[in-house]
């Protein structure tokens, strides 16, 4: 079970923008945590500290008890796999299978271990039939799934998904939801950075709301999304379904999880 512990982390970009201000939070798997907040709120900056893509200006990031300082991103990739938003920024192999194998190979798994992880990742994302295809021959949403598979195949305890459903249609969103649940079932700690509040409400057990570089809220979706004042101050709209829970005509508010039993 992976744990990370972020203590008093602040981060300022070279051009002077303070992107994170004194953030302290900890988490352990298995769990699915949603990171929400408007662009510039610090959620992505925060996530990039977990695998050393960014280093704190102040404060400390501990991964499994050890400080991330002094370890390269590639070394930290053993623990934290980070899936970037644009698949075309990473795909460079000639087949889907080779692309998905890149990550586990870098981590030093033996050939059999690589093969097992690749097969499993392809299965989880429904990509097994496309294994021999050239990624560039696939449509964008499938290339996105290939990029996700290549990160999932690294079989790390922590997985960060950076806006995985941008540009996806309803089916694609469903596939990613299933992926997130499968990862949690396998004991992973999943961090889901997303603008899709309904997705966050459906899949996350915990929500971190970022605003102005600070962690403005940390709780279960029902609580975080019910705090309409705090959401509004953070320029975040609650999930569509929450608005069903509090219209003037309805006698009792209902939480998103209870809504599932109606439909």
């Amino acid at each position: 079970m992976a744990a990370f512990d972020v203590a008093g982390v602040s981060f300022t970009y070279p051009n002077g923008t303070a992107a994170l201000r004194d953030v302290t939070v900890a988490a352990a798997g298995p769990a699915v945590i949603g990171l929400i907040g408007r662009n510039g709120s610090g959620k992505t900056t925060f996530a990039r500290h977990l695998n050393g893509l960014l280093r704190p200006s102040r404060g400390r990031v501990l991964l499994d008890g050890a400080d991330t300082a002094g370890r390269t991103t590639a070394a930290l990739a053993r623990t934290v796999a980070y899936a970037f938003q644009n698949p075309d920024n990473q795909i460079f192999h000639r087949t889907v299978g080779e692309e998905v194998a890149f990550g586990p190979r870098n981590l030093g798994y033996p050939a059999s271990g690589v093969e097992a992880r690749v097969a499993e990742a392809l299965e989880m994302l429904g990509l097994a039939p496309l294994r021999q295809q050239h990624p560039r021959d696939l449509v964008f949403s499938h290339r996105k799934l290939v990029a996700l598979a290549s990160v999932v195949a690294m079989d790390t305890p922590v997985v960060v998904l950076d806006e995985p459903t941008t540009g996806q249609d309803w089916e694609g969103v469903g596939r990613i939801e299933r992926l997130v649940r499968d990862l949690a079932v396998r004991g992973k700690l999943v961090l889901l950075i997303t603008h899709d509040m309904d997705l966050a409400a459906r899949t996350c057990g915990r929500i971190w709301l970022f605003a102005d570089g600070r962690l403005a809220a940390d709780g279960v979706p029902a609580d975080v999304f019910a705090d309409t004042a705090r959401l509004a101050a953070a320029w975040v709209e609650p999930p569509e379904i929450m608005r069903l829970a509090a219209p003037p005509a309805s006698p009792r508010p209902r939480s998103p999880s209870r809504r599932r039993s109606i439909a």
Partner: peptide, 10 residues
């Protein structure tokens, strides 16, 4: 950055 995050040592 994306490749480093997949374990590519730079």
């Amino acid at each position: 950055d994306a490749q480093r995050a997949r374990g590519l040592e730079v």
